[in-house]
């Protein structure tokens, strides 16, 4: 069912999609492909989970969609970051940085020397 993969990524998939859209408008397939390219070997993205995420971002008003023509001349739905999406991306990045930093600090801790006779 792939639910477990989607679950792992649930928090970050939105962030990743927003970030990819910051680079320019793209369609669902393109985003899925880029996501795989960029993160290959790290996440195993279920391509299908891109679409619900896009719909969610659209509902939140972070992105808009319009129909356009793809690189090979086919009709495709393009997604584009809105002003609100830009702001959301900044917030998400900042939050990510904080989380990552915190995680870094936690894993940098060294275990205390065990006391004798405990």
């Amino acid at each position: 069912m792939g639910e477990s993969k989607a679950d792992v990524l649930l928090g970050t998939l939105d962030l990743l999609l927003l970030k990819l859209l910051e680079l320019g408008p793209n369609h669902g397939w393109g985003l899925a492909e880029r996501l795989e390219e960029v993160s290959s070997g790290v996440f195993q993205v279920n391509q299908g989970s891109v679409y619900p995420a896009l719909q969610r971002l659209k509902r939140k008003g972070f992105i808009t969609s319009s129909w356009g023509v793809s690189e090979n001349g086919r009709r495709a739905r393009y997604y584009e970051l809105t002003q609100g999406g830009m702001g959301a991306l900044k917030e998400e990045l900042a939050r990510w940085a904080r989380t990552a930093g915190a995680v870094e600090q936690v894993i940098a801790l060294t275990p205390p020397t065990p006391k004798v006779g405990s």
């Binding site: 391509q47 299908g48 989970s49 679409y51 619900p52």
Partner: peptide
């Protein structure tokens, strides 16, 4: 297979419409 099922995907999108 990569997509993870057409109907499943569609259903998930529908669930995200609110």
């Amino acid at each position: 297979r990569d997509l993870g099922g057409v109907e499943m995907t569609k259903e998930q999108v529908r669930n995200e419409t609110g």
